[in-house]
């Protein structure tokens, strides 16, 4: 494990938190101002009555928007742009959606079990038209359990960076380099958790989240393949090119 001074850790925390805040899509102040308005029943029904392919396309667009912010986040993480291009792509292909799921807890309301989507707060029933009820309910459960950890923005930023810099992704060319970055990020996360006087259990709870994220993402890939098998042309012509690059 690398030797890192406390000053270096503090610096890393600062850089990663700043990167997170600059690229988090919605600022805290914006989130507070956002009316916590849930979709009305008629609005929910109008989402539910959309054709399956239209709902998939809408969600692909929203996911892609969120992912573009994650790419910007990655670029600002110390050391990420020093990795070879192959590894930058590998890490983003595997980790960008995971970070979107992590960030989802910022726009999730546990009390009403709803997430900010398309202008208002949406419960799982809004996504019924996708035909992936089990995946949607797992995503909501994940967001709820992330929320229950009450992470600060600093902690969330470092955990997102830790997820993105996973050194065990397949096809990495300079695995050791990524490993070093991830270890440093983990030390910075531990440092912040300690400084914030969080209980010891938080880190192990976050480790469990890593495997939950992998499962969510592989299930997303499975659902996309099933959808593509039925609607190949819709994916080909109507889905955002970046989404196709990442998940195609």
């Amino acid at each position: 494990s690398p030797t890192v001074s406390l000053a270096e850790l503090d610096h890393l925390v600062q850089i990663i938190s700043k990167s997170h805040l600059e690229t988090c899509q919605y600022l805290r102040e914006e989130l507070q101002q956002m009316s916590r308005q849930n979709f009305q029943q008629d609005e929910v029904e109008s989402y539910q009555s959309k054709p399956r392919e239209a709902m998939w396309q809408l969600c692909a667009v929203k996911i892609t928007e969120a992912i573009q912010y994650v790419v910007e986040f990655a670029k600002r993480i110390d050391g990420f742009m020093d990795l070879c291009q192959n590894d930058q792509i590998v890490l983003l292909k595997a980790g960008s959606l995971e970070v979107v799921f992590v960030r989802m807890c910022r726009v999730f309301d546990s009390q009403s079990n709803s997430v900010y989507f398309d202008g208002k707060f949406a419960g799982p029933d809004v996504f019924k038209g996708l035909g992936c009820d089990d995946l949607i309910s797992s995503v909501f459960d994940f967001a709820k359990s992330m929320c229950s950890l009450h992470l600060t923005e600093d902690e969330l930023a470092l955990f997102s960076a830790f997820v993105l810099l996973s050194a065990d992704r397949s096809w990495l060319q300079e695995k050791l380099q990524v490993e070093k970055l991830q270890q440093k990020t983990q030390l910075a996360l531990q440092h912040v958790l300690q400084k914030n006087q969080r209980e010891h259990g938080v880190l192990s709870k976050l480790r469990c989240k890593v495997s939950a994220l992998r499962s969510l993402c592989s299930r997303h890939t499975e659902k996309l393949s099933a959808f593509r098998a039925v609607y190949p042309d819709i994916v080909q012509t109507h889905f955002p090119p970046l989404y196709k690059e990442l998940f195609g």
Binding site: E72, K75, Q85, I89, K93, L242, E245
Partner: peptide, 16 residues
Amino acid sequence: KEKHKILHQLLQNSTS
């Protein structure tokens, strides 16, 4: 590279 054209582009755009 062709396969990840947009990702490459996004990575190369300046972060300013």
